[in-house]
Write a protein that binds this DNA or RNA. Structure first.
Lengths: 198, 198
DNA sequence: GTCTATAGGTTGATAGAC
DNA sequence: GTCTATCAACCTATAGAC
């Protein structure tokens, strides 16, 4: 779904509540995410939230969808003609910290939400979909590269899985430690791809 | 710290409480981890927990240490003479699901705890230490391999960071999705190392 | 849509008997 | 060490006035 269509999917009050949820989550973590606190971030009364969502779980399901929609928009955008450039473009988009322009610290939120998938089946299904999606995007690009004879004939889905694991791990560590390894991993990953794809 | 010494560090009641915490965490997730529930898993009254730990936070800090101690024991064990074999051994230990023998589903617990590092500085510091530790283990092995002229002269710390990111991402995805990619990534990672190290 | 008030439950933590 | 009883604070959710 293109980014511009995202605004039609959610009403203005819904978007405000989602943004309030986002701010609350970043400040208090998932364990401290309460309707009361979301109501405080939202300018209006907390009981108003129940006009827009039936329950806390209902709100959380919507929020997960809200966040994933925005995340997927960042990986599908930026199509390039050249498969090698296209691949590099997506990797950079995921591993290069955008400047302050991107106020949405979406990776932080995704890491927080994703850990709930360990004990929640509905969350687990959503993130299964997310990872399937990314692997298929990578896989398609690699196969196109092989078809136009830019890349050598590798196992595209295995390479795609490997790329995703490395990216996921780099982001995961970046958001949960004080280590600054993300640029090292990005450089090393691109070098690896240069080695095996050409 | 060797595994055998771990039992001296914690009293019997403490270990029971830690195990009760572990079971509660796996069943209810971090957000549902309450003293009441830990008390139910622990055979005895919940107020007894406050005889062993000053507060919930105190208990959580101890639990994090308890889990990390056990995790570190799994990466330091199994020293081999040959650097290449040693590296492969540790990677397999992390990415090969041990049979039911290993009742401790330590990776699940670590993923759950680690996500708290997004909003908790003390958790973040602990996981910074964990990742530093693993990278230094990998880095040392690679450097020894270069010294004995088994490996080619690579940037050992960059390669170590890359390996850790890939492993972390593979485990992370494995615990938060229904995808079964971990063996694919393991195979691909070992092939990659074979390519660049020899 | 927006609010206050409130119900009914759970939380972390303490007091005090044994 | 172990327990019951209890606290105030907070939670999700609802009722009902405007």
């Amino acid at each position: 779904m293109p980014l511009d269509d995202l605004d039609d999917k959610w009403s203005a009050p819904q978007r405000e509540i989602m943004n309030a949820t986002y701010r609350t989550l970043l400040e208090h973590g998932y364990a401290g995410l309460s309707i009361s606190r979301i109501g405080s971030e939202y300018k209006k009364s907390k009981s108003l939230i129940y006009h827009h969502y039936e329950s806390k779980e209902d709100l959380l399901v919507a929020f997960l969808e809200f966040v994933i929609d925005r995340f997927e928009a960042t990986i599908t955008a930026g199509d390039r003609d050249d498969p090698g450039e296209h691949l590099k473009c997506i990797i950079n988009r995921l591993l290069l910290h955008q400047p302050a322009a991107d106020q949405w610290q979406i990776q932080k939120v995704l890491v927080t939400l994703r850990s709930q998938a360990v004990t929640s089946d509905s969350f687990r299904e959503q993130f299964t979909r997310v990872d399937d999606r990314i692997v298929s995007v990578f896989s398609d690009i690699i196969e196109r590269g092989i078809t136009v004879e830019e890349f050598t004939d590798v196992d595209s889905s295995a390479v795609a899985e490997h790329i995703l694991a490395t990216i996921n791990g780099a982001i995961y560590s970046d958001e949960t430690t004080n280590r600054k390894q993300i640029q090292t991993v990005r450089t090393s990953l691109l070098a690896y791809l240069n080695t095996i794809l050409y």
